[in-house]
Amino acid sequence: MLRMVFCMCLLWWTLPAHATLLEVVTEEGPPLQYLEQGQIRGAGAEFVERLLHRAGYSYRLSMVPWARAELMATTQPNVLIFSIARTPIRESQYQWIGRLLTIQYSLFRLGSRGDIQLERLEDAKVWRIGVVKGDVRANWLRDQGFAYASGTGPGLEEAPTPFDNLRKLQAGRVDLIPSSTLGLVGFCQQTGQRCDQLLPILDLPFRAELYLAASQGTAPDILDRLRKAYGQLVKDGSYDRMLGGYQAQ
């Protein structure tokens, strides 16, 4: 599928209950949210849309690179963002609506790269690691002492999207990428890549709680309605039916 990295794909729903239009932003991350014939699909996107319908808000759903999504959600009111990892650094930057998923991350390499063997995280510092700009995995690796690469040397190399990051791994431009099994399987299905060519070689001591969050400046009454709608979807079983099968993979 041909993709334009910086294109914005929009879904605009107008509901009668509330006049406030909420901007909802996400990045492409199959199987939770992805593009299919110009439409945003996936269990994560569908759950968020059901929540917004339940709360009765008009919204515009956009799929953009993660750095742009975070910029919108940290500089404008009435912006929702998903699926965003809840971390201590981000705690005061957003207003948190509800948890979507728990994700476990590992370092992956190509099956053909038998020269890459890791027994501990420190061993990965001699390799070039692909990360997505602004992503929680990049931030976590920085906290563990990983530096950005200089020239063609080891370190972290940024990409604008997860698809670009995977392509760099396939092309040999990076040696490792941090990912969840769930996320990698989704990208393999979208790109036609054989997942058996991608091997996890080190589980990271890092789980992320992925959330739907709102920007600061979003009105308290909007937050209350969204959180109430989230609670209703948990209580009536919609959450488990839509997202239960994706947890901690």
Results as ranks from 00 to 15, higher is better:
residue 172 G to Y: 12
residue 31 P to D: 10
residue 126 V to F: 03
residue 147 A to N: 11
residue 231 G to S: 04
residue 90 R to L: 02
residue 114 G to E: 14
residue 232 Q to V: 11
residue 209 E to L: 11
residue 200 P to T: 03
residue 163 F to P: 01
residue 9 C to S: 13
residue 70 E to P: 00
residue 222 I to T: 01
residue 49 E to P: 11
residue 156 L to W: 00
residue 6 F to N: 15
residue 181 T to H: 15
residue 110 L to H: 10
residue 21 L to W: 03
residue 13 W to R: 13
residue 176 L to R: 01
residue 79 V to D: 02
residue 192 G to A: 06
residue 116 I to P: 01
residue 128 R to P: 10
residue 8 M to G: 10
residue 121 L to N: 07
residue 120 R to E: 14
residue 95 Q to F: 01
residue 155 G to I: 04
residue 217 G to S: 07
residue 77 P to I: 08
residue 228 K to W: 10
residue 243 L to T: 12
residue 151 G to S: 00
residue 50 R to G: 09
residue 191 T to E: 13
residue 20 T to C: 05
residue 55 A to Q: 05
residue 52 L to H: 07
residue 5 V to N: 02
residue 225 R to A: 10
residue 239 Y to W: 15
residue 189 Q to M: 09
residue 97 I to P: 03
residue 193 Q to G: 02
residue 193 Q to T: 15
residue 13 W to C: 13
residue 34 Y to E: 02
residue 118 L to W: 08
residue 127 W to D: 04
residue 107 L to A: 12
residue 123 D to T: 05
residue 121 L to E: 04
residue 115 D to E: 15
residue 246 Y to G: 06
residue 173 R to T: 08
residue 225 R to T: 00
residue 175 D to M: 04
residue 115 D to F: 09
residue 221 D to H: 12
residue 190 Q to R: 15
residue 211 Y to M: 06
residue 147 A to Y: 05
residue 49 E to N: 06
residue 145 G to W: 08
residue 89 I to R: 15
residue 140 W to H: 05
residue 25 V to I: 01
residue 183 G to A: 15
residue 72 M to R: 15
residue 32 L to Y: 06
residue 98 G to H: 06
residue 154 P to W: 05
residue 161 T to F: 12
residue 236 D to Q: 01
residue 123 D to E: 02
residue 215 S to W: 03
residue 212 L to D: 02
residue 114 G to D: 13
residue 167 R to Y: 11
residue 52 L to N: 05
residue 22 L to F: 08
residue 119 E to Q: 13
residue 196 D to W: 13
residue 103 I to W: 07
residue 56 G to K: 14
residue 31 P to Q: 08
residue 198 L to I: 12
residue 11 L to A: 03
residue 182 L to C: 09
residue 58 S to N: 02
residue 1 M to I: 08
residue 247 Q to N: 06
residue 195 C to D: 07
residue 108 F to R: 04
residue 166 L to Q: 03
residue 25 V to T: 07
residue 161 T to N: 06
residue 13 W to D: 14
residue 114 G to Q: 14
residue 189 Q to G: 11
residue 184 L to D: 07
residue 167 R to W: 12
residue 183 G to N: 13
residue 193 Q to W: 14
residue 24 V to T: 01
